[in-house]
Nucleic acid binder design. Structure first.
Lengths: 331, 331
DNA sequence: CCACTAAATGTTATCGTTAACATATTCAAA
DNA sequence: TTTGAATATGTTAACGATAACATTTAGTGG
């Protein structure tokens, strides 16, 4: 494995000259030496050792992606897609990406320090730990979907409130009056809480407020069994804040001989590619994952380039995608 | 950011003693010092700098995952799942994972060298470059789904041939006589070629060989338009070597007013979670992605622990999952 | 009490690269 | 010719950790 030292010997110069060429500081090296060194580099296939560079210059070129949770988070198509886009964009910008799933925020610092990470992106809820994380790691941090009330948090999110509103307005417009909501961790101020607030505000205005028993702050398992929905006193429609869960729910219904949207209408969230594949195709609130990844990476890179840059919060738009999972109840 | 030097000063010992404690060489340090040092470590939250360790010991703790292709490969649920599992397993074993997508094998060496990778896993076809890659990188390499004829290639794959057989036998058993095959890169000896060979061998034995015009070595776009299948001279069933493509195909059919399985039966491959969600649910050949990831990681770790270990080829089983996308044509 | 092993600890050099500073060299202006 | 800036190159030390070897200390049997 060839090093700068070897190249320097071969070219009859000092390692520092080689280092300058490797790092593109062409103004400081004579044209003659640049050419000589570059030709040796390509002849031997020299590759800089980033561990060494990282040690000596404190710039590792590593960005860490932190996902809260456990197990295989990349199986979830949303996570797979956003992680994939982010590492693609980071790779295009010359950075290497490490993905870690952590349970505890203490793991975060360990992960960031071990590799001298130059920046980090966080998914999932970290609101309560943000201050701590930031204090322990003086590098640019960018969050996704955080509703932390702290100032100075750089966050890229979507308009979850509007998403809820869109869902509610559409249901109302289709003649639904008794509807339900299903999300998780509503007591934390996360995405689902905002979706809930948007959703319920519209319903209230329309004169058909969400009753308490039709708000499910729960994983799918604890949802009331689908056959409850056959009886007319149950909601005619459900807003489930994730396509994946909505699809799973519709499967459970089907396994009991019930059908979407005849027995219960469904609106999902995310607009994953599979949402168009199901039967009926799922009506859902769309967020643009690629765009979110793009903005997140760009924001991080900006902050890495200029650490005095003020924090920023970006809210991306969402839209309603009408497919076939909501019944038209207007006579 | 605290280093071993700081700890050594605080404890009144040399850095070497600290290093020994950090690396768990407890037999070489007195109980007293072990405790003193460990308490300082946890008090200050010391984290070893792996760049430095990597430089000095040549052991970086990094495993690189190389995917051939471009763009966001993790969006594909198969890749997302297997990459997710592998990094999970590697993380559990104390290693860090870097995922790279490369177009050219030359990138491979660059990626492996920059981080002193200790091992690498390859997806996608690299058969012709394996020799070269191995020569340039003297670290354990494990491949997935390679049909390289080179000796000494450690590979974890599935029984693709059997997968093809299972599909064909099932179709025959259901009364299909005129069937088609759709895969990619059949001329390379990859997974799809094996699936094709298994598939066609069974059909031949059964007396209804695949005609040339019903073998599509093509991306979906270049498949004949679905409405061709309405006319009786076209295949009554298609074996499409990827669930994702099969689903996409069935959507294209539906958009033209045709239906699976009435107008054309379909068998997919992989048994992705979405295969059960579609209408009709997709009959497919199942491979166990988690198990594949498990074996691949374990094999790599074994080879990293003992570099003299002989190469091995592991072939995992596949099975037929009958759902609803194949019509029963028996009278 | 000495020699001798085993256990505990320390010293030095090194990994590959870069920052910071130092030294030549060149050329133009004074 | 001298001076000064600009350009090109080199030297040294440092980044944090570990390997390899060296030394000290403690404990053992003769």
């Amino acid at each position: 494995m060839i090093t700068q030292k070897d190249i320097a010997r071969e070219a009859g110069v000092s390692v520092m000259t080689v280092s300058r060429v490797v790092n593109g500081q062409y103004k400081k090296v004579s044209r003659e030496n640049i050419e000589k060194i570059q030709s040796i580099i390509s002849r031997y296939g020299y590759v800089p050792n980033l561990s060494a560079r990282s040690l000596s210059s404190k710039s590792s070129g590593i960005v860490v992606l932190i996902i809260r949770g456990k197990g295989n988070r990349l199986m979830d198509p949303y996570n797979g897609a956003i992680v994939g886009y982010m590492s693609q964009f980071l790779q295009e910008a010359g950075y290497s990406t490490m993905v870690y799933t952590v349970l505890d925020y203490r793991d975060v610092t360990r992960r960031l320090r071990t590799w001298n990470a130059q920046g980090a992106i966080f998914f999932g809820m970290f609101d309560n730990e943000i201050e701590q994380i930031r204090e322990e790691n003086k590098i640019p941090l960018v969050f996704n979907d955080s509703y932390s009330t702290l100032r100075q948090v750089t966050n890229i999110g979507i308009d979850d409130f509007k998403g809820g509103q869109l869902a509610a307005r559409y249901l109302i417009g289709m003649g639904h009056r008794l509807v339900g909501f299903c999300g998780t961790s509503l007591s934390d101020n996360g995405v689902d809480r905002q979706r809930f607030l948007g959703f319920s505000s519209v319903l209230k205005e329309a004169g058909c407020p969400l009753s308490e028993e039709s708000v499910f702050d729960a994983d799918l398992e604890s949802l009331p069994p689908p056959d409850a929905y056959a009886d007319g006193r149950q909601p005619t429609a459900l807003f489930i804040t994730s396509d994946l869960k909505a699809i799973e729910f519709s499967l459970r219904m089907r396994s009991q001989g019930l059908h979407v949207p005849q027995d219960c209408s469904l609106i999902g969230f995310d607009d994953l590619p599979i949402a168009g594949f199901t039967t009926p195709p799922l009506t859902t609130i769309r967020q643009d994952i690629r765009q979110k990844a793009r903005y997140t990476v760009d924001t991080l890179l900006n902050h890495m380039a200029d650490s005095s840059r003020p924090s920023e919060r970006i809210v991306l738009d969402v839209s309603l995608v009408v497919r076939g999972s909501v019944a038209d109840l207007r006579t």
